[in-house]
Amino acid sequence: MTNLPQTTSTLPVSGLKSRVLRHKGMMIGSTIVVFVVLLALLAPLIAPHDPYQQDLLNRLKPPVWDPRGSWEHIFGTDHLGRDYLSRLIYGSRISLLIGIGAALISGVIGTFLGVMAGYFGGRVDMVVTFLITVRLSMPVVLVALAVVAIVGGSLQVVIGVLGLLLWDRFAVVMRSSTLQIRSMDYVTAARAVGCSTTRILMTEVMPNVVNNLIVIATLEIAHAIILEAALSFLGLGVQPPLPSWGLMVSEGKDMMLFEPWLITIPGVALFALVLSVNLLGDGMRDVTAPENRN
């Protein structure tokens, strides 16, 4: 029983490794992601200044490549005279936190619903499918806005709201993957020898859907980060003085026509992060299941 064959990840490890190394998108993606994660972890060591320290006499100083700029503030200062580079470095923490937090919450909800529906079928499946349909019928951005407008934005609220809204893709994919696995011989066998449902779910089903789970999770991390930027644009993102990249973009927005670097610097960071998380997710799908590239 313990030696039941594994079906989905039967790829030889060496082949996997070489495929990863040959996959350019994935290499670029993972390099940037690792870089941003390092920035976030080591922020206090790297940041040249305190990201919260204001200096009202030195507001909106341009970055070093501008003739008016200086090495003191490599990326300039924001509208309250805070060092832009330091805020960018600390901002990586908040943006990652939002992405990972929201993906975690929606992942738990979506996986739970999806696996239940796929494994038990029947009524459970009906209810879950119904929930998914309801969820898809609601305009996400609108609902997120309405909720945040009511309770006031904060890091927890933003993560919570996005987490509660983005579970649909998890549920859909987990449901169909579980459906596939349920009919596999080894699951039937496990059931035949009398394994408990929990045990089957944890030891037989989950390990086999985890690949898909990770792929969806990366896409949803990217999605949550972008949505937070949109919320910030409408004035409903995280609360200042927390420096999320989305908030930095929206704070720089007013001066966009005059000091475009205020929006370009965090905008490019945001773009690179979301892009690389996406590339990483796509790459993982290609590498683990090359026949499924779409």
């Binding site: 919260y52 320290q53 204001q54 009202l56 509208h79 309250l80 407008a149 009511i150 006031g152 934005g153 904060s154 609360q239 200042p240 003085p241």
Partner: peptide, 28 residues
């Protein structure tokens, strides 16, 4: 005027007062 509020929060921090800041729409 979120920026004015942030500047004042900075002043408050300097004398040891920390705040839990909530920025709301006017109605709320």
């Amino acid at each position: 005027n979120r920026d004015y509020a942030e500047a004042m929060i900075n002043n408050l921090n300097a004398v040891g007062i920390t705040v839990k800041f909530t920025y709301l729409k006017y109605a709320a």
